[in-house]
Design a protein around this nucleic acid. Structure first.
Lengths: 147, 147
DNA sequence: CAATAAATCGTAACGATTCCTAATTGTTCT
DNA sequence: AGAACAATTAGGAATCGTTACGATTTATTG
């Protein structure tokens, strides 16, 4: 996903172009990681001091419906990121410190689909691996054992 | 897990016996499915009209720390259930309508552990399959197409 | 049964998210 | 370019789940 592509999808779906929407998309293009609504708000308020929470939530929500953004819930808070470039189904390793992700292409459902039936209708699944990326791990160690 | 065992663990850890705690555990023993804090509160308020939210959350929380309850977050809300009898690591099929679950013993991490490293420190993972159990599926269809 | 610490109630506070209305802005059509 | 229309927005209030608090009650221990 990229800003231009996202703006096109937006137009096709009949949404209006606004500078704020473009900036929001640009933010996700720059920060390739999961962001909270609050992080998005604070970032955009640098250029648009009057920006309201409502605007952020509404736009995050419509972009997610258009599959421009991916959403997941981490530690009681919604997190958003640009949809991955790969169109194939995938999962993520997620750094709980900075929100950075790494893709995994294997999906556990491939192994299970056969055995699951038995009257249960599968409508979705979630597979996420949590931890610390190498950068945040280093930072933690430094902070724990200061010279 | 069962009520007696849970009460014993509670005692061992130095917590006091109260009628409310026993009733809360009994509820989870009867309802073998994920319940929200609100559902627990409403159920207990039948016998204890003055029951406060604080008490429910506090107890759910300590029981979860003692591994008497399992917790997961579904649709923005915490859900609790009695810990499964099997002590081995497992995952769940979860009915989003009624909270009933079915266990899966295969864990996707078994396949991935080898390939994941690369500086990423894994601290946890989540694998859940969502859908409708056979009972809720029937109920939905009836409701959708009334005679 | 008295002493003590834990548990509870009732309510207030909290943070994330949603909802509302009037004012503003982008788009379309001429 | 300008008028008309619908979509978007700001600002703040409302809601929801959850946590925090001081005062009171209760379980435990000796």
């Amino acid at each position: 996903m990229n800003v231009t592509k996202a703006l096109n999808i937006m137009k096709e779906q009949g949404f209006k172009y606004t500078a704020k929407r473009k900036e929001l998309l640009q933010l996700f293009s720059d920060e390739k990681r999961y962001l909270t609504a609050k992080e998005v708000l604070h970032s955009l308020q640098k250029n648009y001091p009057g920006m309201s929470v409502d605007t952020v939530y509404r736009n995050l929500s419509i972009f997610e419906e258009m599959d421009i953004l991916e959403m997941t819930e981490l530690e009681g808070e919604m997190h958003f990121r640009f949809s991955c470039s790969t169109t194939v189904h995938h999962h993520h390793l997620i750094c709980l410190e900075c929100g950075k992700t790494r893709e995994i292409e294997t999906c556990p459902m491939d192994w299970l689909n056969e055995n699951v039936d038995g009257g249960f209708e599968v409508t979705g699944h979630k597979f996420e691996i949590y931890g610390l990326c190498s950068e945040c791990k280093k930072a933690k160690h430094k902070e724990a054992a200061p010279a």
